[in-house]
Design a protein around this nucleic acid. Structure first.
Lengths: 341, 341
DNA sequence: ACCGTTCCCGGAACCGTTCCCGAAAAAAAG
DNA sequence: CTTTTTTTCGGGAACGGTTCCGGGAACGGT
């Protein structure tokens, strides 16, 4: 294994000092053209590339972005990560991934790792089980900027990238009403997360606006998982007064509901309408195809990365922090089209 | 921003040398218990943690694993990445992700990055457009070990993690035959990839075993994407002699076919049976649910990470390289059940 | 009282790079 | 032919650790 070529080696072969080589490589004005040429030529021959670790030690910059998501395998997060990687790549940064598995303890350790590893910044979508967000503030105080996306924390002052969850949920609920549903249930996400609360509020307000009653037993909370979606669907359909529509707080939940409803013999949308949130690429292929509130996940990753790089590369902290609210898009498919059927 | 606390700082406050502090922290025998206690106590108070960058510079070890996949958003790859991250985390390593976007050039650059960044090892599933794999060999020669998974390269001698693609395809085809299909088409993957060739061969051999003809026009190649799956389905169904079953080389392709067939008004499986490969979690939710050859993607990621860490942590190159062949599992759902229907 | 160990610890080199500072040589100015 | 300025380069410190080497003090044995 050939030890990688260093500046010292070039200096030795050329009989000059390492400072000279360093300057020549950086095209400094205080090196003669002739020496520059000789250094550059030899560097090319030896296939020299500077050791980024040495640079990091010097500048305290690693050109690395950390990203923490609950679960990489979740399509929403994996496409967002793709967006982050794209931007990072184009700007000469590298991406380290961590998953919290929805656990507060794991998230804490991940943040620790980011700190000790001296990442230049962090992009994060918080775990549903995290009630405190002090670890993020501490990271910030260590000088490592953070950008939140999707699942943001109100306790931390920084840039955030979200979609208009409230409006998305409002529109979805209103659509269900217009299609003729009157007993609309909602499977909400974990109440720790602001996205869950905002979607719930959108649902409530749409009901109220159209004079429909809000009933506690028609709102149940669930993890953002398919399996719990199934459980909650069983629970809802077992009620004495059955809902005639279910608005799920995410597509994964909706997929669980979808499966449960078919299992139980209901027809969608005739017996019961269904609507999800996120518009995963799978949703269109279900039978019946799932209506959903589309979220630009890839773009969210890109924007989060851009904001983070801005934070990293401007030395001073900005006067104010920005919350980018991207637009959702109501995608209507058969699972909610009561009118036509 | 409080500069992070260093060994030198501890030494200064305690009036000892940095060597003493370093030794005390590593619990060296040549430091008195009293001094150790003082150092440890102060280190705890100041919340000291060693700078991994300095360590990296010293040992030439970064405790970082690189991973290159064609596309993070592909569920197969993202769950595999999840497996890698799990193992890496438990062993104190970190994961840097890169995507090749199926491009040879991008893959080349990604490998370059891994090299200059001094990752301790690389896990990779090769791009479908890569015909040469020299860049991997060069990386190996620089002393950075590689483990391939799923899409492996025959040109590189190292550990590999795959599934038995041949047998999976053979079983799938045989199943289609047993269900009564006689005109079985195959949408294969890009021929550059060994997984594509192996699956094709399994298909061929199953046909031959059961005395069915192999017909060129019933075999078409496609990228592993949903959109091209749709295109190829159109092509196949336009044939004068239509197939009565399609075996797609991946679930993503199958999803495209699924959509096309429903679009065209065919009934599955009565008019035409369909079978995929990978068993993505979505497949069960399609209508009709998609039969598929299940691949343990998460486990593949885990095993790849384990093999890589073995390679990294044993200084000497092993006498021989291992190719772990995991088992596939035929998952039969309605899309292929001609007999019952 | 002398010598060999053992116990603790400090100094310095090293990893690969940048950069400040000073200095020799060359060029310009007197 | 000095003096000053410019050009060009080398030496060393620094980043944050580890480790080799050497040395003073205490201790034991004769």
């Amino acid at each position: 294994m050939p030890a990688s070529v260093t500046i010292k080696e070039i200096a030795r072969q050329l009989g000059v000092s390492k400072s000279t080589v360093s300057r020549a490589l950086r095209d400094s004005s205080e090196i003669s053209q002739e020496t520059k040429d000789r250094v550059l030529e030899l560097a090319r021959q030896l296939n020299y590339s500077p050791n980024p670790i040495a640079l990091s030690l010097l500048n305290n910059r690693t050109h690395t972005l950390g990203i923490i998501v609950p679960e990489i395998a979740n399509p929403f997060f994996s496409t967002a990560i793709g967006g982050v990687e794209d931007i990072a790549y184009s700007r000469g940064y590298h991406v380290m991934i961590y998953q919290s598995h929805e656990s507060y303890e794991r998230e804490l350790i991940d943040v620790q790792h980011i700190a000790t590893r001296r990442a230049d910044g962090l992009i994060v979508s918080v775990s549903s089980q995290s009630e405190k967000h002090d670890h993020f503030v501490e990271l910030q105080e260590k000088g490592i900027p953070i950008v939140f996306f999707d699942r943001v924390s109100d306790a931390v002052q920084t840039h955030k990238v979200i979609v208009d969850d409230y409006k998305g949920a409002y529109d979805a609920t209103e659509h269900l009403i217009k299609e003729g549903s009157r007993r609309i249930a909602h499977i909400a996400g974990p109440p720790n997360l602001s996205i869950s609360r905002n979607r719930l509020q959108g649902y409530r307000d749409a009901l109220q606006k159209h004079g429909l009653p809000f009933r506690d037993e028609w709102v149940v909370a669930s993890e953002y998982s398919q399996s719990e979606g199934t459980e909650r669907a069983y629970q809802l359909m077992a009620l004495r007064e059955r809902p005639d529509a279910i608005f799920a707080a995410s597509d994964r939940i909706a997929m669980g509901v979808h499966w449960a409803l078919r299992q139980l013999g209901y027809r969608m949308p005739e017996d019961i309408a269904l609507m999800g949130f996120s518009d995963l690429s799978i949703s269109a292929l279900l039978d019946p195809p799932l209506s959903s509130v589309a979220q630009p996940s890839f773009e969210m990753g890109q924007q989060a990365a851009e904001l983070l790089l801005e934070l990293i590369e401007s030395k001073s902290t900005p006067a104010s922090f920005e919350t980018r609210v991207l637009k959702t898009n109501l995608v209507i498919r058969r699972s909610s089209m009561k009118n036509i059927s």
